[in-house]
């Protein structure tokens, strides 16, 4: 047995591992996309990547309702929540990372006071450009006091966009420095103009029947089936449901605020690692309660560029380009105005 041969092989294995280390920590991959409207009312797009991957280009109509310029994620360790700080920080960091690779609008993690100031500022100015992500399952008392005259409710009336997950919306309110959450009733009336049974009880539940708007979900690669805090769409007027449904409760619903211009997106589950990509995909694709899928197409790229052409009606549309399956490695949405 020649010891040198084994030592050489061992050294080679270490060299391979260290090469892998470099590949893992030096960003080697880059992707980009572009989209435009041609004179003949068709939408052109191009996708470029130095990886080998699948891309999806989805054209959505009914997207001119909101113009989101920034995303705020609420998190304040001084306020109690359903999960530990470590857990929430972990999931929020993951969500930020998922949002960034989808070229989200400017994303910031904000505390209770800043959230209140932002909402009040938008209410005063009458311009609603912010999407608020509530992942803690509780509202801080700075924006919600259990009544319809709270900053969050007034903001939704005016046109704010709220993405909610983690518990029954409006049931728990957190006060600074206190460890116990105060429980509120009547959330159904405040947020949906309906009885409190509009949201499922919180018993862990999963659904397997696709919701009515599963075409939008499948074009986005969304597969979200938790209905623990799912919403009963029977009480809603304008909405799309892009998850799964069970016993009347849907796992992922985007609905117009019942007494105003805003939108609430209700996720039936918790802030978890698996929820983060779905949340980011929903936010960045800019889908809302009036979105409809016009066309979707898919292709493959091997370290190069792919181009495509989609015919449309000439109205305001959004084209959302995604690279990668089963995980998204890059995505970008393009709002394209009327021809």
């Amino acid at each position: 047995m020649d010891k040198r041969i084994f030592a050489t092989i061992f050294a080679t294995i270490i060299a391979v591992i260290l090469a892998g280390q470099i590949l893992a920590y030096v960003p080697l991959y880059h992707s980009s996309a572009d989209a435009w409207r041609n004179d003949d009312c068709s939408i052109g797009y191009s996708v470029d990547t130095n990886a080998s991957s699948v891309y999806t280009a989805s054209l959505f109509g009914g997207v001119d309702t909101y113009s989101i310029e920034r995303v705020l994620i609420y998190y304040d360790p001084e306020y109690p929540a359903h999960h530990s700080d470590k857990y929430l920080e972990d999931k929020i960091m993951l969500t930020v990372s998922e949002l960034r690779l989808r070229n989200s609008p400017e994303t910031t993690v904000v505390n209770a006071e800043y959230t209140k100031e932002t909402l009040l500022h938008e209410i005063e100015s009458g311009t609603y450009r912010t999407a608020l992500l509530m992942m803690t399952g509780v509202f801080p008392d700075t924006i919600y006091n259990g009544t319809a005259d709270s900053p969050i409710v007034n903001w939704l009336k005016g046109g704010g966009v709220l993405y909610w997950l983690g518990d029954i919306i409006g049931t728990y309110v957190a006060c600074r420095g206190e460890s116990i959450l105060s429980q509120q009733y009547g959330y159904g009336e405040v947020f949906f103009g309906s009885p409190d049974c509009v949201i499922a009880s919180g018993k862990i539940n999963y659904a397997s029947d696709p919701s009515p708007d599963s075409d939008v979900a499948s074009s986005l690669g969304i597969s979200y089936n938790i209905t623990t805090f799912g919403i009963n769409t029977r009480y809603l007027e304008q909405y799309i449901s892009i998850g799964y449904t069970k016993d009347g409760y849907d796992s992922l619903v985007l609905t117009k605020f019942h007494s105003g211009e805003g939108m609430i997106a209700i996720f039936g589950g918790d802030a978890s690692s698996d929820a983060a990509p779905t949340l980011a995909q929903t936010v960045c694709s800019m889908v809302n309660y009036s979105t409809s899928l016009i066309h979707t197409e898919r292709g493959t790229i091997t370290m190069g560029t792919a181009c495509g052409l989609i015919q449309d009606t000439g109205g305001t549309v959004c084209i959302y380009i995604c690279i990668g399956t089963p995980l998204v490695t890059y995505a970008r949405s393009f709002n394209i105005g009327k021809a």
Binding site: S52, Y206, P326
Partner: peptide
Amino acid sequence: ISITTGFGNLLGMSIPGEMFSELVSSSEAA
């Protein structure tokens, strides 16, 4: 994995896997 993924890209492997809605069940989170 990082080296393997690099090889996969060089070899033109564009689809490593797909999500199948048939596998979504009412007994666990998808």
